[in-house]
Design a binder for these strands. Structure first.
Lengths: 183, 183
DNA sequence: TTCCCACTGGGCAAACTTGCACGTTGGGCA
DNA sequence: TGCCCAACGTGCAAGTTTGCCCAGTGGGAA
Protein backbone atom coordinates (compact mmCIF):
# COMPACT_ATOMS: atom_id res chain seq x y z
CA UNK A 1 0.00 0.00 0.00
CA UNK A 2 1.94 2.98 -1.26
CA UNK A 3 -0.67 5.59 -0.43
CA UNK A 4 0.97 8.32 -2.51
CA UNK A 5 -1.13 10.61 -4.66
CA UNK A 6 -0.68 8.30 -7.63
CA UNK A 7 -2.22 5.24 -5.99
CA UNK A 8 -4.99 7.33 -4.49
CA UNK A 9 -5.90 8.77 -7.88
CA UNK A 10 -5.82 5.41 -9.56
CA UNK A 11 -8.16 3.71 -7.15
CA UNK A 12 -10.31 6.81 -7.13
CA UNK A 13 -10.91 6.58 -10.88
CA UNK A 14 -11.48 2.86 -10.59
CA UNK A 15 -14.02 3.41 -7.86
CA UNK A 16 -15.68 6.21 -9.78
CA UNK A 17 -16.02 3.96 -12.81
CA UNK A 18 -17.49 1.19 -10.70
CA UNK A 19 -20.00 3.45 -9.01
CA UNK A 20 -20.99 5.07 -12.29
CA UNK A 21 -21.44 1.66 -13.87
CA UNK A 22 -23.55 0.40 -11.00
CA UNK A 23 -25.67 3.54 -10.85
CA UNK A 24 -26.34 3.58 -14.58
CA UNK A 25 -27.07 -0.13 -14.65
CA UNK A 26 -29.64 0.26 -11.90
CA UNK A 27 -31.06 3.34 -13.55
CA UNK A 28 -31.45 2.15 -17.14
CA UNK A 29 -30.91 -1.57 -16.94
CA UNK A 30 -27.57 -3.27 -17.52
CA UNK A 31 -28.16 -3.80 -21.23
CA UNK A 32 -28.94 -0.20 -22.05
CA UNK A 33 -25.69 1.11 -20.62
CA UNK A 34 -22.73 1.74 -22.89
CA UNK A 35 -19.11 1.83 -21.84
CA UNK A 36 -18.96 5.36 -23.14
CA UNK A 37 -21.78 6.56 -20.92
CA UNK A 38 -20.06 5.04 -17.90
CA UNK A 39 -16.79 6.71 -18.79
CA UNK A 40 -18.54 10.04 -19.28
CA UNK A 41 -20.30 9.73 -15.94
CA UNK A 42 -16.96 9.10 -14.28
CA UNK A 43 -15.38 12.02 -16.15
CA UNK A 44 -12.87 9.75 -17.81
CA UNK A 45 -12.20 8.68 -21.38
CA UNK A 46 -13.59 5.50 -22.87
CA UNK A 47 -10.02 4.33 -23.31
CA UNK A 48 -9.34 4.67 -19.61
CA UNK A 49 -12.32 2.48 -18.85
CA UNK A 50 -10.67 -0.27 -20.86
CA UNK A 51 -7.46 0.24 -18.90
CA UNK A 52 -9.30 -0.72 -15.72
CA UNK A 53 -12.00 -3.17 -16.71
CA UNK A 54 -12.42 -5.70 -19.49
CA UNK A 55 -16.09 -4.87 -19.86
CA UNK A 56 -19.03 -3.21 -18.19
CA UNK A 57 -19.87 -6.36 -16.23
CA UNK A 58 -16.48 -6.34 -14.59
CA UNK A 59 -16.99 -2.71 -13.65
CA UNK A 60 -20.39 -3.45 -12.17
CA UNK A 61 -19.03 -6.30 -10.06
CA UNK A 62 -15.91 -4.56 -8.92
CA UNK A 63 -17.55 -3.89 -5.57
CA UNK A 64 -18.17 -7.58 -5.14
CA UNK A 65 -14.59 -8.32 -5.99
CA UNK A 66 -13.39 -5.90 -3.33
CA UNK A 67 -15.69 -7.55 -0.84
CA UNK A 68 -14.40 -11.01 -1.65
CA UNK A 69 -10.79 -9.89 -1.53
CA UNK A 70 -11.47 -8.36 1.84
CA UNK A 71 -12.82 -11.69 3.00
CA UNK A 72 -9.65 -13.37 1.78
CA UNK A 73 -7.53 -10.90 3.70
CA UNK A 74 -9.54 -11.51 6.83
CA UNK A 75 -8.96 -15.23 6.50
CA UNK A 76 -5.24 -14.63 6.09
CA UNK A 77 -5.27 -12.46 9.21
CA UNK A 78 -6.57 -15.33 11.31
CA UNK A 79 -3.91 -17.02 13.46
CA UNK A 80 -2.03 -19.57 11.36
CA UNK A 81 -2.76 -22.41 13.76
CA UNK A 82 -6.50 -21.86 13.69
CA UNK A 83 -8.35 -24.84 12.16
CA UNK A 84 -9.80 -24.16 8.70
CA UNK A 85 -13.45 -24.04 9.62
CA UNK A 86 -12.93 -21.80 12.60
CA UNK A 87 -10.85 -19.39 10.55
CA UNK A 88 -13.52 -19.20 7.87
CA UNK A 89 -16.33 -18.61 10.33
CA UNK A 90 -14.45 -15.96 12.26
CA UNK A 91 -13.42 -14.19 9.05
CA UNK A 92 -17.00 -14.12 7.82
CA UNK A 93 -18.14 -12.71 11.14
CA UNK A 94 -15.45 -10.06 11.01
CA UNK A 95 -16.45 -9.10 7.47
CA UNK A 96 -20.05 -8.65 8.49
CA UNK A 97 -19.00 -6.66 11.53
CA UNK A 98 -17.05 -4.26 9.33
CA UNK A 99 -19.94 -3.53 7.03
CA UNK A 100 -22.71 -3.42 9.59
CA UNK A 101 -23.94 -0.24 8.04
CA UNK A 102 -25.49 -2.16 5.17
CA UNK A 103 -24.13 -0.77 1.96
CA UNK A 104 -27.24 0.13 -0.05
CA UNK A 105 -25.25 0.00 -3.27
CA UNK A 106 -24.35 -3.58 -2.53
CA UNK A 107 -27.93 -4.55 -1.82
CA UNK A 108 -29.03 -2.89 -5.04
CA UNK A 109 -26.29 -4.78 -6.84
CA UNK A 110 -27.58 -8.08 -5.49
CA UNK A 111 -31.11 -7.31 -6.59
CA UNK A 112 -29.83 -6.25 -9.98
CA UNK A 113 -28.35 -9.69 -10.48
CA UNK A 114 -31.60 -11.51 -9.99
CA UNK A 115 -33.23 -10.36 -13.19
CA UNK A 116 -30.22 -10.55 -15.47
CA UNK A 117 -28.78 -13.99 -16.05
CA UNK A 118 -26.14 -12.61 -18.41
CA UNK A 119 -24.53 -10.89 -15.46
CA UNK A 120 -24.42 -14.08 -13.45
CA UNK A 121 -21.79 -15.62 -15.69
CA UNK A 122 -19.30 -12.98 -14.66
CA UNK A 123 -20.35 -13.34 -11.09
CA UNK A 124 -19.68 -17.06 -10.92
CA UNK A 125 -16.36 -16.64 -12.70
CA UNK A 126 -15.28 -14.13 -10.08
CA UNK A 127 -16.43 -16.39 -7.28
CA UNK A 128 -14.63 -19.36 -8.80
CA UNK A 129 -11.34 -17.46 -8.87
CA UNK A 130 -11.72 -16.42 -5.27
CA UNK A 131 -12.71 -19.95 -4.36
CA UNK A 132 -9.40 -21.26 -5.66
CA UNK A 133 -7.49 -18.66 -3.68
CA UNK A 134 -9.49 -19.46 -0.61
CA UNK A 135 -8.77 -23.17 -0.94
CA UNK A 136 -5.07 -22.44 -1.33
CA UNK A 137 -5.22 -20.50 1.89
CA UNK A 138 -6.68 -23.46 3.72
CA UNK A 139 -3.89 -25.92 2.92
CA UNK A 140 -1.38 -24.52 5.44
CA UNK A 141 -4.01 -24.87 8.11
CA UNK A 142 -4.01 -28.63 7.97
CA UNK A 143 -6.53 -29.57 5.32
CA UNK A 144 -5.56 -31.80 2.46
CA UNK A 145 -6.20 -30.66 -1.09
CA UNK A 146 -9.63 -32.13 -1.52
CA UNK A 147 -10.84 -31.02 1.86
CA UNK A 148 -9.58 -27.50 1.18
CA UNK A 149 -11.53 -27.30 -2.03
CA UNK A 150 -14.66 -28.69 -0.50
CA UNK A 151 -14.45 -26.37 2.46
CA UNK A 152 -13.92 -23.34 0.29
CA UNK A 153 -16.75 -24.29 -2.04
CA UNK A 154 -19.25 -25.05 0.69
CA UNK A 155 -18.29 -22.01 2.70
CA UNK A 156 -18.84 -19.60 -0.20
CA UNK A 157 -21.98 -21.44 -1.18
CA UNK A 158 -23.32 -21.03 2.34
CA UNK A 159 -22.54 -17.34 2.25
CA UNK A 160 -24.35 -16.93 -1.06
CA UNK A 161 -27.32 -18.89 0.17
CA UNK A 162 -27.59 -16.86 3.34
CA UNK A 163 -27.37 -13.62 1.39
CA UNK A 164 -30.04 -14.72 -1.06
CA UNK A 165 -32.21 -15.81 1.80
CA UNK A 166 -31.70 -12.52 3.59
CA UNK A 167 -32.78 -10.56 0.54
CA UNK A 168 -36.09 -12.38 0.65
CA UNK A 169 -36.45 -12.43 4.43
CA UNK A 170 -35.02 -9.19 5.79
CA UNK A 171 -36.77 -9.80 9.09
CA UNK A 172 -33.50 -10.91 10.64
CA UNK A 173 -30.07 -9.40 10.02
CA UNK A 174 -27.74 -10.80 7.41
CA UNK A 175 -25.29 -11.67 10.18
CA UNK A 176 -27.86 -13.87 11.86
CA UNK A 177 -28.66 -15.75 8.67
CA UNK A 178 -25.00 -16.22 7.89
CA UNK A 179 -24.24 -17.52 11.35
CA UNK A 180 -27.04 -19.98 11.06
CA UNK A 181 -26.02 -21.04 7.56
CA UNK A 182 -22.45 -21.70 8.60
CA UNK A 183 -23.42 -23.95 11.44
CA UNK B 1 -10.80 24.95 -25.46
CA UNK B 2 -10.61 21.19 -25.77
CA UNK B 3 -12.92 20.35 -22.87
CA UNK B 4 -11.98 16.68 -22.83
CA UNK B 5 -11.30 14.90 -19.58
CA UNK B 6 -7.61 15.71 -19.84
CA UNK B 7 -8.07 19.47 -19.97
CA UNK B 8 -10.66 19.34 -17.23
CA UNK B 9 -8.36 17.40 -14.95
CA UNK B 10 -5.45 19.68 -15.63
CA UNK B 11 -7.25 22.89 -14.81
CA UNK B 12 -8.84 21.17 -11.83
CA UNK B 13 -5.40 20.38 -10.45
CA UNK B 14 -4.24 23.92 -11.11
CA UNK B 15 -7.31 25.35 -9.43
CA UNK B 16 -6.94 23.02 -6.45
CA UNK B 17 -3.33 24.10 -6.02
CA UNK B 18 -4.30 27.75 -6.23
CA UNK B 19 -7.10 27.41 -3.71
CA UNK B 20 -4.95 25.40 -1.34
CA UNK B 21 -2.19 27.98 -1.61
CA UNK B 22 -4.55 30.85 -0.97
CA UNK B 23 -6.26 29.11 1.92
CA UNK B 24 -3.02 28.16 3.63
CA UNK B 25 -1.54 31.61 3.07
CA UNK B 26 -4.54 33.22 4.70
CA UNK B 27 -4.50 30.68 7.47
CA UNK B 28 -0.84 30.70 8.47
CA UNK B 29 0.59 33.70 6.69
CA UNK B 30 2.28 33.56 3.28
CA UNK B 31 5.75 33.06 4.73
CA UNK B 32 4.89 30.05 6.86
CA UNK B 33 3.51 28.04 3.95
CA UNK B 34 5.72 25.54 2.17
CA UNK B 35 5.26 24.29 -1.34
CA UNK B 36 5.00 20.80 0.06
CA UNK B 37 2.12 21.67 2.35
CA UNK B 38 0.27 23.24 -0.58
CA UNK B 39 0.82 20.15 -2.70
CA UNK B 40 -0.34 17.89 0.11
CA UNK B 41 -3.47 19.95 0.63
CA UNK B 42 -4.25 19.64 -3.08
CA UNK B 43 -3.51 15.90 -2.99
CA UNK B 44 -0.71 16.26 -5.50
CA UNK B 45 3.02 15.75 -5.41
CA UNK B 46 5.50 18.54 -4.81
CA UNK B 47 6.84 17.91 -8.27
CA UNK B 48 3.46 18.53 -9.83
CA UNK B 49 3.24 21.86 -8.08
CA UNK B 50 6.40 22.90 -9.88
CA UNK B 51 4.90 21.75 -13.16
CA UNK B 52 2.17 24.35 -12.76
CA UNK B 53 3.68 27.22 -10.85
CA UNK B 54 7.17 28.64 -10.53
CA UNK B 55 6.65 29.33 -6.85
CA UNK B 56 4.05 29.73 -4.13
CA UNK B 57 3.46 33.37 -5.00
CA UNK B 58 2.46 32.47 -8.50
CA UNK B 59 0.03 29.91 -7.12
CA UNK B 60 -1.47 32.44 -4.75
CA UNK B 61 -2.00 34.97 -7.53
CA UNK B 62 -3.33 32.54 -10.07
CA UNK B 63 -6.86 33.73 -9.36
CA UNK B 64 -5.81 37.26 -10.14
CA UNK B 65 -4.24 36.10 -13.36
CA UNK B 66 -7.45 34.40 -14.40
CA UNK B 67 -9.36 37.57 -13.64
CA UNK B 68 -7.03 39.70 -15.71
CA UNK B 69 -7.08 37.26 -18.59
CA UNK B 70 -10.85 37.33 -18.47
CA UNK B 71 -10.72 41.10 -18.70
CA UNK B 72 -8.49 40.82 -21.74
CA UNK B 73 -10.92 38.44 -23.38
CA UNK B 74 -13.79 40.79 -22.70
CA UNK B 75 -11.90 43.61 -24.36
CA UNK B 76 -11.27 41.42 -27.37
CA UNK B 77 -14.94 40.57 -27.54
CA UNK B 78 -15.88 44.20 -27.93
CA UNK B 79 -16.74 45.24 -31.51
CA UNK B 80 -13.55 45.93 -33.43
CA UNK B 81 -14.65 49.42 -34.41
CA UNK B 82 -15.35 50.52 -30.87
CA UNK B 83 -13.03 53.32 -29.75
CA UNK B 84 -10.37 52.23 -27.23
CA UNK B 85 -11.76 53.96 -24.18
CA UNK B 86 -15.27 52.80 -24.77
CA UNK B 87 -14.13 49.21 -25.21
CA UNK B 88 -12.15 49.33 -21.99
CA UNK B 89 -15.01 50.78 -19.99
CA UNK B 90 -17.57 48.37 -21.35
CA UNK B 91 -15.26 45.40 -20.75
CA UNK B 92 -14.69 46.45 -17.16
CA UNK B 93 -18.41 46.79 -16.65
CA UNK B 94 -18.99 43.35 -18.13
CA UNK B 95 -16.33 41.82 -15.88
CA UNK B 96 -17.95 43.28 -12.81
CA UNK B 97 -21.35 42.12 -13.96
CA UNK B 98 -20.08 38.56 -14.30
CA UNK B 99 -18.71 38.41 -10.78
CA UNK B 100 -21.48 40.24 -9.03
CA UNK B 101 -21.50 37.52 -6.43
CA UNK B 102 -18.37 38.96 -4.85
CA UNK B 103 -15.82 36.20 -4.64
CA UNK B 104 -14.83 36.10 -0.97
CA UNK B 105 -11.59 34.37 -1.84
CA UNK B 106 -10.68 37.26 -4.07
CA UNK B 107 -11.43 39.81 -1.39
CA UNK B 108 -9.34 37.84 1.07
CA UNK B 109 -6.57 37.74 -1.48
CA UNK B 110 -6.56 41.50 -1.82
CA UNK B 111 -6.43 41.94 1.93
CA UNK B 112 -3.62 39.43 2.12
CA UNK B 113 -1.56 41.58 -0.18
CA UNK B 114 -1.72 44.64 2.00
CA UNK B 115 0.46 43.30 4.76
CA UNK B 116 3.03 41.49 2.66
CA UNK B 117 5.17 43.63 0.39
CA UNK B 118 7.10 40.62 -0.84
CA UNK B 119 3.97 39.40 -2.58
CA UNK B 120 3.46 42.72 -4.31
CA UNK B 121 6.48 42.21 -6.53
CA UNK B 122 4.84 39.26 -8.21
CA UNK B 123 1.60 41.15 -8.41
CA UNK B 124 3.07 44.08 -10.29
CA UNK B 125 4.96 41.78 -12.62
CA UNK B 126 1.73 40.02 -13.51
CA UNK B 127 -0.03 43.30 -14.04
CA UNK B 128 2.80 44.60 -16.22
CA UNK B 129 2.55 41.60 -18.51
CA UNK B 130 -1.17 42.04 -18.88
CA UNK B 131 -0.70 45.72 -19.41
CA UNK B 132 1.46 45.03 -22.45
CA UNK B 133 -1.11 42.65 -23.87
CA UNK B 134 -3.83 45.14 -23.24
CA UNK B 135 -1.92 47.89 -25.02
CA UNK B 136 -1.36 45.61 -27.99
CA UNK B 137 -5.09 45.05 -28.14
CA UNK B 138 -5.73 48.77 -28.34
CA UNK B 139 -3.62 49.43 -31.43
CA UNK B 140 -6.10 48.00 -33.96
CA UNK B 141 -8.74 50.24 -32.47
CA UNK B 142 -7.07 53.40 -33.72
CA UNK B 143 -4.68 54.40 -30.96
CA UNK B 144 -1.02 55.02 -31.76
CA UNK B 145 1.60 53.17 -29.77
CA UNK B 146 2.12 55.73 -27.06
CA UNK B 147 -1.55 56.35 -26.58
CA UNK B 148 -2.20 52.59 -26.34
CA UNK B 149 0.35 52.21 -23.60
CA UNK B 150 -0.91 55.21 -21.71
CA UNK B 151 -4.48 54.08 -21.98
CA UNK B 152 -3.68 50.57 -20.81
CA UNK B 153 -1.61 51.84 -17.92
CA UNK B 154 -4.12 54.41 -16.72
CA UNK B 155 -7.02 52.04 -17.16
CA UNK B 156 -5.46 49.32 -15.01
CA UNK B 157 -4.28 51.89 -12.53
CA UNK B 158 -7.81 53.23 -12.22
CA UNK B 159 -9.12 49.71 -11.65
CA UNK B 160 -6.57 49.06 -8.96
CA UNK B 161 -7.29 52.37 -7.28
CA UNK B 162 -11.02 51.75 -7.28
CA UNK B 163 -10.53 48.31 -5.83
CA UNK B 164 -8.27 49.57 -3.09
CA UNK B 165 -10.71 52.33 -2.34
CA UNK B 166 -13.58 49.87 -2.21
CA UNK B 167 -11.77 47.69 0.28
CA UNK B 168 -11.62 50.67 2.62
CA UNK B 169 -15.05 52.05 1.84
CA UNK B 170 -17.40 49.12 1.21
CA UNK B 171 -20.36 51.43 1.65
CA UNK B 172 -20.85 51.50 -2.12
CA UNK B 173 -20.43 48.59 -4.52
CA UNK B 174 -17.19 47.97 -6.31
CA UNK B 175 -18.97 48.56 -9.60
CA UNK B 176 -19.94 52.05 -8.52
CA UNK B 177 -16.44 52.97 -7.50
CA UNK B 178 -15.03 51.60 -10.72
CA UNK B 179 -17.51 53.48 -12.85
CA UNK B 180 -16.63 56.66 -11.05
CA UNK B 181 -12.91 56.03 -11.31
CA UNK B 182 -13.05 55.41 -15.04
CA UNK B 183 -14.85 58.65 -15.76
C1' DT C 1 -29.55 -11.42 -47.51
C1' DT C 2 -26.81 -7.50 -47.53
C1' DC C 3 -25.65 -3.15 -45.86
C1' DC C 4 -25.21 0.14 -42.21
C1' DC C 5 -24.04 1.71 -37.85
C1' DA C 6 -23.45 1.80 -32.90
C1' DC C 7 -20.64 -0.47 -29.65
C1' DT C 8 -16.59 -2.53 -28.38
C1' DG C 9 -11.59 -3.92 -27.56
C1' DG C 10 -7.10 -2.76 -28.04
C1' DG C 11 -2.46 -0.59 -30.31
C1' DC C 12 0.06 3.55 -30.15
C1' DA C 13 2.06 8.01 -29.17
C1' DA C 14 1.56 12.12 -26.57
C1' DA C 15 0.37 14.56 -22.33
C1' DC C 16 0.28 14.73 -17.42
C1' DT C 17 1.70 13.20 -12.84
C1' DT C 18 4.82 11.12 -9.75
C1' DG C 19 8.87 9.46 -7.14
C1' DC C 20 13.60 9.95 -6.78
C1' DA C 21 17.85 12.23 -6.90
C1' DC C 22 20.86 16.07 -7.01
C1' DG C 23 22.52 20.73 -6.40
C1' DT C 24 21.40 25.36 -4.46
C1' DT C 25 19.97 28.65 -1.10
C1' DG C 26 19.07 31.00 3.10
C1' DG C 27 18.35 31.10 8.01
C1' DG C 28 19.56 29.34 12.64
C1' DC C 29 23.01 27.63 15.80
C1' DA C 30 27.55 26.10 17.70
C1' DT D 1 32.72 32.28 11.07
C1' DG D 2 31.42 27.74 9.51
C1' DC D 3 28.05 24.00 9.71
C1' DC D 4 23.48 22.06 9.35
C1' DC D 5 19.14 21.47 7.50
C1' DA D 6 14.69 22.54 5.68
C1' DA D 7 12.78 24.24 1.54
C1' DC D 8 13.23 24.77 -3.15
C1' DG D 9 13.91 24.05 -8.29
C1' DT D 10 14.70 20.77 -11.75
C1' DG D 11 16.26 16.53 -14.79
C1' DC D 12 14.80 12.01 -15.55
C1' DA D 13 12.39 7.64 -15.89
C1' DA D 14 8.23 5.28 -14.97
C1' DG D 15 3.18 5.03 -14.31
C1' DT D 16 -1.42 6.68 -15.70
C1' DT D 17 -4.67 8.88 -18.73
C1' DT D 18 -6.06 10.47 -23.16
C1' DG D 19 -7.12 11.03 -28.08
C1' DC D 20 -7.00 8.86 -32.36
C1' DC D 21 -6.83 5.03 -34.74
C1' DC D 22 -8.62 0.60 -36.86
C1' DA D 23 -10.82 -4.03 -36.97
C1' DG D 24 -14.45 -7.14 -35.28
C1' DT D 25 -19.28 -7.86 -33.86
C1' DG D 26 -24.19 -7.89 -33.74
C1' DG D 27 -28.70 -6.03 -34.55
C1' DG D 28 -31.90 -3.51 -37.50
C1' DA D 29 -33.36 -1.47 -42.05
C1' DA D 30 -33.43 -1.68 -47.07
Amino acid sequence: MDNGPRERRKSATRLALHQAALRLALEHGPDRVTVESIADAADVSRRTFSNHFAGKEEAIFYGDLLRLRRLLDLVRERPADEPPRTALTRAATALLAESDRLDPAWVAQRRLLRGHPSLIAHQVAAYAAVERELAAELGPRGADELRSKVLAATFLAALRAATRHWLEHPDRTLAEWVTEALS
